[in-house]
Simulated assay, not measured.
Amino acid sequence: MAEEPPKPTARDRLWPFALGMAAVALVVYVFTYAGDQSLRSKDGGWQVTFTTNSAGTPMLRVDLPSKGFTNCTVVFEGESVPADFQPLTTNFTDPTHLPVPVLFGEWFYADLTYLPGAVTFNLFGKEANGTAGMRHEVELIQAGLVVDRHRHDWQPDLAVIATAENKRDWPKPEKQKGNLRPWHMFMVLVIIGGVMLLVRRFSNSNQ
């Protein structure tokens, strides 16, 4: 009578299953990461130009072509720039350690996880024009252009005048804590589900 081939043990079945789950998790991670990176950068960052208007008054010009926000300006009445001032255009796309000095003041807050994100400036404060504690706060968010805590809806050629009377010793908002993004949550669920299936499969094989 021929001997029956030995049945695979639980340990024999565990490794192929574990390797298969690892391969599935890796493939899912690669595709979700690539999709997340595309989603993060598809709208591009805020294009900000520190310049002056025709009268020589300091002006901030903001553009976000992907959303149709073009030639949006904030003119700072009553402020001035040095005689050797040169306009500067920059694109806010990369997170950095804040605060960072910029023309007219400082860039002190940003959430650039998903572009264009949020960018906030303190401008023409103590270091800029000698007004101790008083400064303009300008925030760029998709919901609108916020100047001195007053929001203006985005539209092409939006023009905002920031006067010295609107300067305040604005309390700096607390830094927001990062939240789990959708693909992070998906990966967590995949890993938890894989572990649960692995434990269940291993338990059944021992019965």
Score class of each variant (00 low, 15 high):
residue 89 T to G: 12
residue 149 R to C: 03
residue 22 A to C: 13
residue 206 N to R: 15
residue 77 E to R: 07
residue 18 A to M: 10
residue 129 N to V: 07
residue 115 L to R: 09
residue 64 L to S: 04
residue 61 R to D: 01
residue 162 A to R: 02
residue 172 K to T: 14
residue 58 P to N: 06
residue 191 I to G: 00
residue 49 T to S: 13
residue 39 L to W: 07
residue 80 S to T: 12
residue 93 T to K: 10
residue 125 G to Q: 08
residue 203 S to F: 12
residue 122 N to P: 01
residue 147 V to C: 04
residue 132 A to L: 08
residue 177 K to C: 00
residue 87 P to V: 05
residue 58 P to K: 04
residue 168 R to I: 01
residue 34 A to R: 13
residue 4 E to K: 14
residue 129 N to I: 05
residue 175 K to P: 03
residue 45 G to C: 08
residue 103 L to V: 04
residue 47 Q to E: 08
residue 142 Q to W: 00
residue 144 G to N: 01
residue 149 R to L: 03
residue 153 D to H: 04
residue 134 M to D: 03
residue 114 Y to V: 15
residue 6 P to H: 05
residue 135 R to V: 07
residue 24 V to N: 05
residue 204 N to K: 14
residue 101 P to H: 02
residue 190 V to D: 09
residue 49 T to I: 02
residue 166 N to D: 13
residue 30 V to A: 12
residue 7 K to Y: 05
residue 16 P to M: 03
residue 56 G to K: 02
residue 21 M to E: 07
residue 88 L to A: 09
residue 69 F to K: 00
residue 120 T to V: 11
residue 6 P to Y: 01
residue 138 V to N: 00
residue 34 A to L: 14
residue 169 D to R: 12
residue 48 V to Q: 01
residue 3 E to V: 13
residue 140 L to Y: 01
residue 166 N to S: 15
residue 122 N to M: 08
residue 192 I to N: 10
residue 107 W to C: 06
residue 32 T to L: 14
residue 182 P to L: 06
residue 31 F to H: 10
residue 72 C to Y: 01
residue 136 H to M: 06
residue 1 M to W: 13
residue 83 A to K: 15
residue 127 E to H: 10
residue 82 P to M: 11
